[in-house]
């Protein structure tokens, strides 16, 4: 028994256990996601988190886990830089619908952040919660940087971003039916603007053109918000 307690201690001294558990939970989450026939309400990150929670609670504590798992989250840096590539590849689509895209982006991106901030503020959310909420429609790697800059709580921001993505991927197709929108480009662009990567993955399942426009919108919204949100925040604060 003593040896077993010592073993848990030994394994948590290096990043080995946190990294291995993260990979394991992710694999199991992915299997669950496939098994349930890829439901929009349970993206792999949510499934993986739910499986990872009991593992951490049993074997480690969150602080130990997080410092070891930095080996994985470090790669969010290059993954953010890598977003330039899909943005470049989809950029030619901007010429097809330049004015609608530019206007929807300039109105929609501030609206996505502003509406949620306004509601949360009216209902009495505190400043750190607001700072975690502001980048809710931005792709998660950029949202993590933004929330750190504004003084938010990173895990909260990641959770909010994931929930926003799920809601938009469920809601946008329903609204399109109701508004009688058949143009995949509109559906895709609005999904990517509001629901970033999670909605973009969904948009690609709905149609190639919807996916391409969603991917474009995700890149544009990410860049637009990353440039303007810190300025807007400084002015408001």
């Amino acid at each position: 028994m003593e040896r077993i307690t010592a073993l848990a201690e030994h394994l948590s001294q290096t990043p080995l256990l946190p990294v291995a558990l993260t990979l394991l939970a992710y694999q199991l989450g992915l299997m669950l996601f496939q098994k349930l026939k890829r439901p929009a309400w349970l993206p792999p990150i949510v499934a993986g988190s739910l499986l990872l929670v009991p593992m951490i609670a049993l074997l480690l504590d969150y602080a130990t886990y997080y410092s070891g798992a930095k080996w994985i989250s470090f790669l969010l840096g290059p993954a953010t830089v890598a977003l330039a590539v899909p943005l470049f590849l989809q950029f030619r689509h901007i010429r097809e619908l330049f004015v609608p895209i530019a206007v929807t982006l300039c109105v929609g991106a501030p609206l996505a952040a502003g509406l949620a901030l306004g509601i949360a503020w009216l209902l009495g959310a505190d400043l750190a919660v607001l700072a975690s909420l502001a980048p809710k429609s931005v792709t998660a790697p950029i949202a993590v940087s933004l929330t750190e800059q504004l003084g938010g709580v990173v895990p909260l921001a990641v959770g909010i971003v994931a929930l926003t993505g799920v809601l938009c991927s469920l809601f946008a197709p329903l609204c399109c039916r109701w508004l009688k929108i058949e143009d995949e480009r509109i559906l895709g662009f609005v999904m990517g603007l509001n629901g970033h990567g999670i909605a973009t993955a969904r948009a690609f399942e709905l149609g190639h053109q919807a996916g391409a426009f969603s991917s474009l919108a995700m890149g544009l919204t990410g860049a637009f918000t990353a440039l303007l949100l810190p300025l807007a925040w400084a002015l408001l604060a």
Binding site: P18, T22, L23, A25, Y26, P43, P44, I45, G48, S49, L52, V53, I56, Y62, Y65, Y66, A69, K70, I72, S73, L75, L76, A79, A116, L117, I119, A120, L123, G124, A125, D126, V129, L133, K136, A140, P141, V144, V153, V154, P155, L156, V158, G159, I160, A162, L163, T164, L167
Partner: peptide
Amino acid sequence: SLLLLPGGVGLFFLGERMSGQWLPLLTAV
């Protein structure tokens, strides 16, 4: 999704930090 998992799972370990904040937050989102 894998790269975000270590940060995202922290949501379940926020504890006291979030008392009274969930309702405004979820309504807003």
